[in-house]
Amino acid sequence: MRDKNYTAVSLFTGAGGMDIGFEKAGVKPVLANEMMKEAATTYSTNHPGAKMVNDDVNNIFPLLEDYAGVDFVFGGPPCQGFSVAGKMDPNDERSKLIFTFLDAVEKIQPKAFVMENVKALGVLDKWSDVRKKYLGRTREMGYLCVPFVLKATDFGVPQKRERVFFIGIKGIDDAMFEHNMQELINAQKVKAPSVREVLAPLGVAGTEINPKTSTAKITFATNPIMRKSPYSGMYFNGQGRPINVDEYSNTLPASMGGNKTPFVDEDYLYGDAKEDWVVGYHKGLVNGTIKPQFELAPNRLRRLTIKEAAKIQSFPDDYEFAGSKGKVYTQIGNAVPSKMAEAVAKAVVTYLEEMALRSA
């Protein structure tokens, strides 16, 4: 299958994580749109074959007429308005952009669209009216659309990131669509490697291949909030938590760069240490052999580098990012993991091709 290249318009493109995945599935973006200047530059550097428009999405609608009839529209509108990590404000202007995305779909009339967002939009009762309105609009436009909540760890990404993908297909009447699409997505599943396995080729931070990029200090919380796991609770200041390198990281946030950047034990990850330092510290706090500390954490604990964050998000090793370190961390945290996007794109392409065979 995939005997042809499909074309696409990419919206809310960011640094292009979703585009990497779609390209690997045989879908070629011909137009992309991103408002953040640095992310737009990153995209253009790595995707020279697509026209990038660095502007507010609302300003590009006249241009979309030139791309009517491309095969796909895909993108991930800003999710802060729906995120449990945010204020969950239904009046947040960013929450309206999922409908702006549909405005673009209506103008372009692709065979299929894929819109990514936070899991909360797909499952929480708080957003049930928004979901109904969104799905009702897609029906009016002639698309059969279903939301699918997926885990990044099911698709080769070592990160406990869950996201919803609204997948819409134009002009079909398939009572088994949700089941059929879920089966195609399931066929793309591959167990994710651990954080250690993914980062191993980089080696210690501070080298040319893995430069140190976050200097934010790691300090101890005055009043630790304990949990069973040394990787939860709050016994360090800031929102950057320790990563269990033998398993998966928590969702990497767009706010990385400072003290919200997750951290690792350098000696345990790349050196000879037999135990993660935070495991021993947590154990001592729990059994009372260690009192809470208030000075700086030991040097072996340090923040994720840009290279490490990009690998955890499944960006290719040679992907080039533009902008300051803080802007690059933001681009990485905002991205859709490319391997996750690739799995979804391959499932949708397969569905379209099987549908074409049945109607031939």
Rank of each mutant, 00 (worst) to 15 (best):
residue 1 M to A: 15
residue 5 N to I: 12
residue 5 N to D: 02
residue 6 Y to A: 06
residue 9 V to P: 01
residue 12 F to C: 06
residue 13 T to Q: 03
residue 14 G to W: 01
residue 15 A to P: 02
residue 16 G to Y: 00
residue 17 G to T: 13
residue 25 A to S: 08
residue 28 K to I: 06
residue 29 P to E: 13
residue 34 E to V: 13
residue 37 K to I: 07
residue 38 E to I: 02
residue 39 A to T: 05
residue 43 Y to C: 05
residue 45 T to Y: 00
residue 47 H to A: 07
residue 50 A to G: 04
residue 50 A to M: 04
residue 60 I to F: 13
residue 64 L to Q: 03
residue 65 E to W: 13
residue 66 D to R: 07
residue 66 D to M: 10
residue 67 Y to D: 02
residue 68 A to Q: 15
residue 70 V to W: 00
residue 71 D to H: 06
residue 73 V to T: 01
residue 78 P to I: 09
residue 78 P to G: 13
residue 79 C to E: 00
residue 81 G to H: 00
residue 92 D to R: 01
residue 93 E to V: 11
residue 99 F to C: 08
residue 99 F to G: 03
residue 99 F to L: 04
residue 101 F to K: 00
residue 101 F to W: 05
residue 102 L to K: 00
residue 103 D to Q: 04
residue 105 V to R: 00
residue 108 I to T: 04
residue 108 I to G: 02
residue 110 P to K: 01
residue 110 P to G: 07
residue 113 F to M: 01
residue 118 V to M: 13
residue 124 L to S: 00
residue 125 D to A: 05
residue 127 W to A: 00
residue 129 D to A: 05
residue 132 K to P: 04
residue 132 K to W: 08
residue 135 L to D: 10
residue 137 R to H: 04
residue 141 M to Y: 04
residue 141 M to L: 14
residue 143 Y to M: 09
residue 152 A to F: 08
residue 153 T to Y: 13
residue 154 D to K: 14
residue 158 P to F: 08
residue 158 P to S: 10
residue 162 E to N: 12
residue 164 V to T: 01
residue 170 K to T: 12
residue 171 G to E: 06
residue 173 D to T: 13
residue 174 D to E: 14
residue 176 M to F: 15
residue 178 E to D: 09
residue 183 E to D: 13
residue 184 L to H: 12
residue 186 N to E: 06
residue 189 K to H: 14
residue 193 P to W: 06
residue 200 A to R: 13
residue 201 P to G: 04
residue 203 G to V: 14
residue 204 V to T: 11
residue 204 V to R: 00
residue 205 A to H: 01
residue 208 E to D: 13
residue 208 E to S: 10
residue 209 I to L: 14
residue 212 K to C: 07
residue 213 T to C: 07
residue 214 S to Q: 03
residue 214 S to V: 15
residue 215 T to K: 10
residue 219 T to H: 08
residue 224 P to M: 00
residue 225 I to F: 08
residue 227 R to M: 05
residue 227 R to D: 09
residue 228 K to S: 14
residue 231 Y to Q: 06
residue 238 G to P: 14
residue 243 I to T: 01
residue 243 I to D: 02
residue 244 N to I: 11
residue 247 E to G: 06
residue 248 Y to I: 02
residue 249 S to M: 01
residue 254 A to S: 11
residue 265 D to V: 13
residue 266 E to V: 12
residue 271 G to K: 11
residue 273 A to R: 07
residue 275 E to V: 15
residue 276 D to I: 11
residue 280 G to Q: 05
residue 281 Y to T: 10
residue 284 G to T: 08
residue 287 N to P: 07
residue 293 Q to V: 11
residue 293 Q to F: 12
residue 294 F to H: 14
residue 295 E to G: 08
residue 296 L to D: 14
residue 297 A to Y: 03
residue 302 R to T: 12
residue 310 A to S: 02
residue 311 K to V: 04
residue 315 F to L: 06
residue 316 P to L: 12
residue 317 D to A: 14
residue 317 D to F: 10
residue 318 D to A: 11
residue 325 K to R: 11
residue 331 Q to V: 13
residue 334 N to M: 09
residue 334 N to D: 09
residue 336 V to H: 01
residue 343 A to Q: 04
residue 343 A to S: 15
residue 344 V to Y: 04
residue 345 A to V: 08
residue 345 A to D: 12
residue 348 V to D: 02
residue 350 T to A: 09
residue 350 T to Q: 02
residue 354 E to T: 15
residue 358 R to S: 12
